[in-house]
Amino acid sequence: MPPTEIDSAELQGLLDKQAINEVLMRYSRAVDRGDEALLRACYHDDAVEDHGGSFLGAASDYIAAILPALHSDRLMTHTVTNVLVELESPILARSECYYLSFARYPAAEPPFETLTLARAIDRMEKRDGVWRIARRTLRWEWNREQPIAETWARGGIGDPAILLHGGKMPNDPLYDA
């Protein structure tokens, strides 16, 4: 059987979908590590953020509003799942993904942890050869809260006193030269 010829438009579509997927992953990295510059790079300058009732406006204003949380000691983890990217043209796409996020609020009274599932439906635009979010519409799916219960598998993972933890920018191994 002769080798199949690669269709250049199909190949470009795959490259575009991968680039959009990486924007979604970088968003998680940015909010979890408190990396403001990386977060801003996920959005076009004129992007709109509809954060499901908690914020509606310019994405740059949304970022400014969440900076205190991003730069706090609050532990946050955002996991991206169920990513679907639909290319509408060579410069326009719609993506949908689920964010499963964990956050710890040790200063609250009483202290608690929260696990939340939300969906992000994004209008992605490719401008000057770069895919970014032009409009994000976030919708909340569910939430669970509980008292802080960190036992590291009751010691099964290792001695909690010596386990090394991730940190915010620049105090995370990701930012080591």
Rank of each mutant, 00 (worst) to 15 (best):
E113S: 05
T114Y: 02
T114E: 15
T114N: 07
L115E: 12
L115I: 09
L115Q: 12
L117N: 13
L117W: 12
L117Q: 12
L117D: 06
L117R: 08
A118Q: 08
A118T: 07
A118P: 05
R119W: 06
R119K: 14
R119A: 07
A120P: 04
A120M: 14
I121N: 12
I121L: 15
I121Y: 08
I121V: 13
D122E: 06
D122W: 02
D122S: 01
D122N: 06
D122Y: 03
R123A: 08
R123C: 03
M124S: 01
M124G: 02
M124D: 08
M124C: 08
E125D: 11
K126S: 02
K126N: 09
K126I: 03
K126C: 04
R127E: 09
R127W: 06
D128A: 04
G129S: 05
G129F: 02
G129H: 05
V130K: 00
W131D: 01
W131I: 01
W131C: 03
W131S: 00
W131L: 07
R132N: 01
R132E: 02
R132I: 00
I133S: 03
I133A: 01
I133T: 02
I133P: 00
A134H: 10
A134R: 06
A134T: 08
A134S: 07
A134K: 08
R135Y: 09
R135K: 12
R135G: 06
R136S: 11
R136D: 10
R136T: 10
R136L: 09
R136W: 07
T137W: 09
L138N: 11
L138M: 14
L138Q: 11
R139N: 12
R139S: 15
R139F: 04
R139L: 09
R139Q: 13
R139Y: 06
W140E: 07
W140Q: 07
E141F: 03
E141G: 11
W142H: 04
N143D: 10
N143W: 06
R144Y: 08
R144D: 03
Q146I: 02
P147V: 03
P147D: 08
I148L: 09
I148D: 03
I148A: 10
A149E: 14
A149N: 15
E150K: 08
T151D: 15
T151N: 15
W152E: 14
W152N: 15
R154V: 14
R154L: 13
R154H: 15
G155I: 08
G155W: 11
G155F: 11
G155L: 06
